[in-house]
Design a protein around this nucleic acid. Structure first.
Lengths: 240, 240
DNA sequence: CCTCATTGGTATTTTTTCATACCGTAGAAG
DNA sequence: CTTCTACGGTATGAAAAAATACCAATGAGG
């Protein structure tokens, strides 16, 4: 076994210090819209437990997000950390800037990773026999995206994609898909939400769901690949 | 977005403390045969840098592996931490014990995750245009497995599988595949290496490589799925 | 208007982890 | 046999993180 594989196994044990990782995690949860504008995060005590860190470290992270203008922290009962941040509107943000902020190699890496895990998840899900509740969940998320207001579109689009991984019943796979999506959140948020694109995406979403429900793994994987390739090509085009 | 998705994003920031994670990482590198019997690990100073931890913490981890009988640590120039551990021989280990040592849910999770990322990786690789060096690497790894001595079979089999992910050029994807494989190492090591199985696997390996080189993503993904499903079914069968 | 549960805010101590410097050893090279 | 040097071994102080306990505020409900 060559040196190359040693790199995969003897890679860093931790990405950074607990504080930095926590800020990153919370920031992405906010940017992704997991906790929408106006809603509050779980209490510090709960969050600290879920994130596996001390309340002190969590508070430092929350404080920095507060100072950066993402959160409004209120005390007392029924208080908490409320999300102030609003993602870029339907008109999108500065895509070129967002793309060039991350390295070309990192972008390619993230896109490849996302393609692999999301295709894999759809493929797996298509081989499973879904019960009625699971089918309902999938269709519900699809309907949510199709009926989304422009300002909610990206949030519900993300929810739809993550549902596919979650329905496989594999937490590891769900985490991998969530991670993959987090790495391109800023970029996706900068893409304008335009009518034709939405219609195109809707057709592709439908194709994905149909293939999954029909038990067609290859078809599901291919449908996801086509869907993701669209935004991937767009993003790659912005590499200076 | 429902509570379920909150779980994916507000999951633990770190799996455990630095010491525990380091022990786990080194242990798996040893069990996987990345550093074969008799070879030595990189020096403490190098390893600490690569793993992103302090030398003190690394030494604690090495010491516990030494006490557990996996490593022989020698000092002085040309010294180092040498691997004593030998993986279970061709006759395999106690599979039932290994399977039941990890929970049923964890096993299903790990198998699903592995299936998704390895299928995804093969699929991606089949869409890429490989240069001659990459094709040579892939064929070389395939030949290595086919020509492997029984005692080296699992190590070279792992090397072959990880090569597919590495050749995609995505470190994230390579890491995910390595992680997926690590989670089932103990189980795979416990499976006896038998002649008929090797022949069967060799045919499947050939099918995977052929599909990749032919630029057939669906075929590559399906070939990997079939290959992995074999061991997955075997392992699931041992769930008490 | 008061109570009180729930939430953020603060302080203190302990544990873990890191950074740095230095010591002891062994084995190849001359 | 001596030297040189790349390795593990040790010590110490600082920093990060965690654990614990307690304080303060707020607003719904009685």
């Amino acid at each position: 076994m060559k040196e190359t594989q040693l790199g995969s196994l003897l890679r860093p044990v931790r990405a950074g210090n607990a504080f930095e990782e926590t800020v990153e995690r919370l920031l992405q949860a906010v940017k992704l819209g997991v906790v929408p504008h106006g809603e509050r995060l779980p209490s510090e005590r709960d969050l600290a437990v879920h994130l596996g860190i001390s309340r002190v470290t969590l508070r430092e992270a929350i404080r920095s997000l507060q100072e950066a203008g993402y959160l409004d922290v209120r005390r007392g009962r029924y208080g908490g950390a409320f999300v102030i941040y609003r993602p870029p509107g339907p008109s999108g943000g500065d895509l070129a800037e967002a793309v060039n902020q991350m390295g070309a190699g990192d972008l390619a890496d993230a896109l490849t990773f996302r393609m692999a895990v999301e295709c894999g998840a759809a493929q797996i899900l298509a081989t499973l026999t879904l019960d009625s509740a699971q089918r309902a969940m999938l269709l519900r998320r699809l309907a949510d995206v199709n009926g989304a207001a422009p300002s909610d579109y990206r949030r519900l689009d993300t929810a739809f994609h993550l549902s596919i991984a979650e329905l496989t019943g594999s937490p590891l796979l769900a985490a991998a898909c969530a991670d993959a999506r987090l790495r391109v959140t800023d970029l996706l948020n900068a893409i304008p939400v335009l009518g034709p694109n939405i219609a195109h995406a809707a057709a592709q979403h439908q194709a994905i769901v149909s293939a999954i429900l029909a038990g067609d793994p290859d078809g599901a994987s291919r449908a996801v690949a086509e869907h993701l390739e669209g935004t991937a090509a767009l993003l790659r085009g912005f590499l200076a």
